[in-house]
Design a binder for these strands. Sequence first.
DNA 1: AATTCCAATATTGTATACAAAAATCTTGAC
DNA 2: GTCAAGATTTTTGTATACAATATTGGAATT
Lengths: 210, 210
Amino acid sequence: MIVTGELVNGERLDEISLSEKFGCSRTPLREAFQSLAASGLLELIPHRGAFVRHPDLSDMIEMFEVMAELEAFCGRLAARRVTQQDLAELYRTVIACEDAVANNDSDRYYAENEKFHHLLYKASGNQFLADQAGQLHRRLKPYRRLQLRVRGRLEQSLSEHRAILEALENGNADDVAVALRAHVAVQGGKFNDLMASYKSFQQSGQKFGT
Amino acid sequence: MIVTGELVNGERLDEISLSEKFGCSRTPLREAFQSLAASGLLELIPHRGAFVRHPDLSDMIEMFEVMAELEAFCGRLAARRVTQQDLAELYRTVIACEDAVANNDSDRYYAENEKFHHLLYKASGNQFLADQAGQLHRRLKPYRRLQLRVRGRLEQSLSEHRAILEALENGNADDVAVALRAHVAVQGGKFNDLMASYKSFQQSGQKFGT
DNA sequence: AATTCCAATATTGTATACAAAAATCTTGAC
DNA sequence: GTCAAGATTTTTGTATACAATATTGGAATT
């Protein structure tokens, strides 16, 4: 089920008008609301309705803080548990990223970057952790997306991927964790990038998909 | 909304008989199913129904692995961000725990232990992290509960709390993290405790509350 | 006797109708 | 003119009826 729309923070979603818009009844809409509320995009207030809840800047910083730690932990576990096949697949995404950078194809880079991270989650050998990391990753998607548009970020990100992969191959858990934390964390100049992407996201219409 | 019942793994929940049991229609039941599925207690298969999904032993080990890391991270952040008031409240729970141990009151210990951990989550200064940690904590509740019944575990747990609090007071992030990881992680003898509590949980009827 | 196809049945998914709660508007008093 | 209380309207929450899909049982064929 998919909900698409231009939504501003705090807006109430009217069940009736939305059901007309989507050509369905209120029942499946309410189920979709619950699903979206569970992933934090909506807030359901009893007898009041469903309200759009954009994370504010401080929420986002908090989420990135946790994301960095989750990925670092994935990396630390993966350093011990990664298989040859995982390494090979990770290597392929790095190659593909190089290609994307060479062609300045940020969409393609984005897709391969996503693959890289999901492979890493899986390589942790902890399915629950991989699920949690994947969920949070998905939730931060729209913000990270815009960050990659920042000039020079593609190259930097790529070289960080290389470093992560190298540390993984060496089986050095601490190196992997440090590299991943730095790769994901919002710090230094990246804070301004995040803030810019946040504002741009706030202004523009946006799409939520489930 | 509350769901209580004796449920075995893999069982399909029949909407009609449950709606009769609770004296409501299928609509609110289905909403409850979604909520339970979101927190991982049920699995909803389209056109098939809602199935009880107990974590198996390996799921649980995975969850405890993540729990340990989340708490360690809470602790690391708290070492920097904890307030005097947080410290005072943490201290109070430790005193209360001492009292509970002295009276061999495992129920009371359990309650104060819970308070200790939630205070720690809050002390991280990261609300998102605190929520995530709290959710996972709640999900692991029934298993941890039985672990505390193991002879000598109360005293050990208490002394670990003391060490954690001391490291927090000293502001030593690494010490806090190490102590918490050890406190939460399933390792060594605790693995057997977990396995025993798991089996006992599997056998007995159990209650899920939301 | 086993297997496959089709029909019957049961169960989930959706629409609509009704009930309850909240929000709004009107009317009256100060 | 402003505020408050009550009535009206709007909107969420729930029940029920209907549609669509999956499962099960039986019959026919190989």
